[in-house]
Structures are given as C-alpha cells and as structure tokens.
Simulated assay, not measured.
Amino acid sequence: MTDPKLSIRSARQNDLAALIALYGDDDIGVTREAMEPDDAYQTAFDTIQSDPNHVLVVGELDAKIVATLLLSFLPGLSRHGAWRAQIEAMRVSSDLRGQGIGQAMLDWSIAEARKRGCALVQLTSDRRRADAHRFYEQAGFAPTHFGYKLSLETP
C-alpha cells in the first residue's frame, strides 16, 4: 500500500489504551510502557489535551487506530523568534510499517506546522531505531544535531 486511506484525527479519551499499545509495539517500547492505562497516562493525556500548543493525533484505517504522534509547537527567540514544531512519539503499528502510513502522518504534521507559521519541524529518534532513521531521511529530515537526554526517573 502506498496511498493509505488514513484518517487522522485528534485523540479521544477512549483511545488511550490503543495509544499505549502502539507505544509498546516494538522491542524498545515494550521495555518502557506499562501497557495499560493508569493514572500517570491519564494525567499526561489530560495535560496534553488542555494545552493548545500540543496536538495528540491518531491515524485510523477502517476505524482501527494504527498510528499516533504528538505534535508540539514551541516558541523561541532564536532564528528571529521562530516557532518550531516538534514531533514526538510517532508510532505506526508494527504489522503496517512500510505501507505509507508514517509518510501520511509526517505530511499531516508538516502541513499543520506550516499553518501555524513554524520555521522548522524537528524530531528525535532513539539511536537503536535504524529503520526509522532511514525513513525520516527519505522523508527529507536531516540528522543535523546531536541529541542529549538526562533521565530523571529512578530505576
């Protein structure tokens, strides 16, 4: 499939379990996710939904959630006060990868960033996700920066 009939819409409360399942749908995610909705997921969902600078969306095929991403809009002073769009937690169901769904989600995100007047779209990807890196580079993203993270979670 190269032209998925993907419907992209804002996430709803009753999508939470499907979102968590997508986050855990690979070797990396399965080690980080609780796999069932709990208070922490609910609080995060509510916080995202209440902030107009965050848009949590799902992609549906045949009324089934098969993809998701969080698109955040970040103001800044650099680049002459430019806004950035940050794509986070983009996931496509593992059995549907390589069929154009991820590209449709990226295209939607880029269009939304343009509508909001953003100067650039950025994202991060775990170093272990080589297939994702190839995908993002084929989509026109360039690995121009190093990313650093400091975990504040206790083991």
Rank of each mutant, 00 (worst) to 15 (best):
A67K: 06
H54S: 09
A44L: 09
L74K: 13
G29C: 03
R32G: 02
A82E: 11
T47L: 13
A67Y: 08
I101F: 10
Y41V: 05
Q99D: 08
E36D: 11
E36M: 07
L56E: 14
M90D: 00
G102W: 08
R114W: 01
V57W: 01
I87V: 14
A67T: 10
L56G: 14
T31F: 15
T31D: 13
I65S: 12
A82M: 08
L106C: 01
D39H: 06
I28T: 04
V66K: 13
L96M: 09
T124W: 11
G117S: 06
G29W: 00
K64P: 13
N53R: 15
A119N: 12
A119W: 07
L61H: 11
N53V: 12
L69Q: 10
I65R: 14
D62W: 04
M35D: 15
G76V: 01
F73V: 00
R116A: 00
R84G: 06
P37R: 01
W108K: 04
M35G: 15
I48F: 14
Q49G: 13
W108L: 06
V30F: 05
V58F: 12
I28C: 04
E33A: 06
I87H: 01
S125I: 08
A34Q: 09
L96F: 09
I87N: 01
M105N: 02
G24D: 00
F73T: 00
L74E: 09
A67G: 09
R97K: 11
A63S: 11
L70N: 10
L106R: 01
R32A: 04
W108H: 05
V121E: 05
Q42P: 03
S93Q: 10
L71Q: 03
A104F: 13
Q103P: 07
D27K: 04
R114H: 07
Q122R: 14
L70Y: 07
G59T: 05
M35L: 13
